[in-house]
Design a protein around this nucleic acid. Structure first.
Length: 425
RNA sequence: GGUAGGUUACCCAAGUGGCCAACGGGGGCAGACUGUAAAUCUGCUGGCUUACGCCUUCAAUGGUUCGAAUCCAUUACCUACCA
């Protein structure tokens, strides 16, 4: 199966230029790139798709380039807060690129001899160009008439409330310049990106053709949406990051486990490297016995393996089994210790448990499970709070030393899946 | 620069002197049912309080009034029309 057919099967092709020619081009190793904005020092699951797609190309023998938008990122989206943008100094951007590179190493192979991945920063070739030169050499090739016809621009121009700034209007020129530059310097012939990038990609294709009479190609990936219409990758706690310091391995694993039934198989295709047969088998199991959630588990395991490694995944799985497996009775301290490392943990002074102890409501606020005592009380009265996996409906309840597991842990839960361990110091 | 209109909780949005911590919808959280699902139903959704109740909120500041989200003045921001 060719890379193109594989992407098609996985539902990863939203649009592409000259399908026939592109497929022909991809029969031989090709250099391709995808860009990302280094606006944060960390990747989240939302911007994983193009990078995983790069990996798929790499596995098929192509040469991937991950392009950090050191230049484009510094311009960014002007509708955001101006302070925010100024804070993204060169140092910050460089720092972000450096830390993101570490994360990219998990996705792309930078070491292989045949077709190593590369990480480039468009600031290196954009920053030295003077405004005047840019206008003469690049701007000259763009027709404003065509630019305002692009969907991204037109939408903003029709939205009179927001409008579009000159800076943002120019964004596509910078991205087009990247593509042209990469074609010239690295013989890069394909750009992939999210479907919102279509206009920017075609701008680059046209610029390359005009400047060097070279044909390059574009391919866009669909914007991933949950079936229920919500944005993929967002939870109540915010984005799901690939850095374990920002999103614990357990939470990362849980994020995938909790995928909507209707999305599970689709996400297996989009995100994992599982083959056609494996996914077909999982799809069948999922259809026959959805409550077993075989597809969810495979998805969660594959993704956690990919990002955090198998050992960490095993621990997250063990913690999940314990927490959702039922009663804590008969659990060994060693096993429980596994959980402690996975779920959020807060410390509690031992003296707070002396005598009458601490009101449960306070413990809930301290743990971060409830935003206020009032809310904590309502949650308890609503039956949403468990101590050591046993429901506690009494809002007057105090927690004391007697509630401790193994003399030092207190397992609090709000709702079905929000756990916090309080550790006594 | 002129004129008119607007700014209410996470978002949308009612409220035009006391019955307003503020209708309704969305979102969110929790419960029942389940499979850590979907759909459905129920409760909650400013803070403190066991409770009676108290406190802080309707862009900001000052004022009128026994009493202000509501009236007046000033300021800031947004929108529309005009220049």
């Amino acid at each position: 199966m060719s890379i193109f057919e594989e992407l098609e099967w996985r539902g990863l092709i939203a649009d592409c230029t000259d399908k026939v020619e592109l497929q022909k081009k991809l029969t031989a190793p090709t250099v391709l790139y995808a860009g990302f904005d280094p606006t944060a020092d960390c990747l989240h699951v939302g911007n994983l798709v193009p990078l995983i797609a790069l990996r798929r190309f790499q596995l098929c023998g192509h040469h991937p380039i991950a392009l950090a938008g050191g230049a484009t990122g510094s311009i960014g989206d002007p509708s955001g807060k101006s302070q925010e943008r100024q804070l993204l100094t060169k140092e910050v951007l460089d720092g972000n690129i450096a830390s993101v590179k570490e994360q990219l190493k998990k996705l792309l192979d930078f070491e292989t001899k045949t077709n190593p991945a590369r990480l480039l920063d468009n600031a290196t070739w954009t920053a030295p160009v003077s405004f005047l030169d840019f206008l003469r050499d690049i701007g000259k090739h763009f027709s404003v008439n065509q630019m305002i016809a692009k969907e991204s621009v037109r939408a903003r121009m029709e939205d009179r409330e927001t409008g579009i700034s000159y800076t943002e209007f120019s964004y596509m020129l910078l991205q087009a310049f990247d593509f042209y530059h990469l074609r010239k310097e690295c013989n890069c012939e394909l750009q992939i990106g999210g479907s919102d990038q279509w206009g920017n990609i075609t701008a680059g294709i046209e610029l390359t053709r005009k400047k060097m009479s070279a044909q390059v190609y574009g391919l866009t990936l669909p914007l991933i949406m949950n079936t229920d219409g919500t944005k993929f990758g967002k939870t109540a706690a915010g984005a799901v990051w690939v850095d374990a310091k920002k999103t614990s391995v357990y939470r990362f694993y849980q994020f995938w486990i909790r995928t909507d039934d209707r999305d599970a198989v689709r996400y297996l295709k989009i995100f994992t490297f599982l083959g056609r047969e494996e996914i077909a088998a999982l799809e069948q199991q999922h259809a026959e016995k959805p409550e077993a959630r075989a597809a969810h588990k495979a998805l969660a395991k594959a993704m956690t393996d990919l990002i955090h490694g198998e050992n960490a995944t095993a621990e997250a799985m063990r913690a999940s089994e314990i927490l959702f497996g039922g009663a804590l009775e008969g659990i060994s301290e060693t096993t429980f210790n596994d959980i402690v490392g996975e779920v959020p943990t807060k410390e509690l002074a031992r003296t707070a448990l002396d005598g009458a102890g601490t009101p449960l409501v306070e413990a809930l606020v301290l743990s971060g499970l409830c935003p206020s005592k009032g809310q904590a009380r309502k949650d308890i009265e609503g039956g949403g709070v468990n101590i050591n996996n046993l429901r506690e409906a009494n809002a007057q309840r105090h927690v004391t030393a007697q509630d401790l597991l193994f003399g030092k842990y207190l397992l609090l839960r709000k709702g079905k899946r929000n756990y916090v361990v309080l550790t006594v110091k």
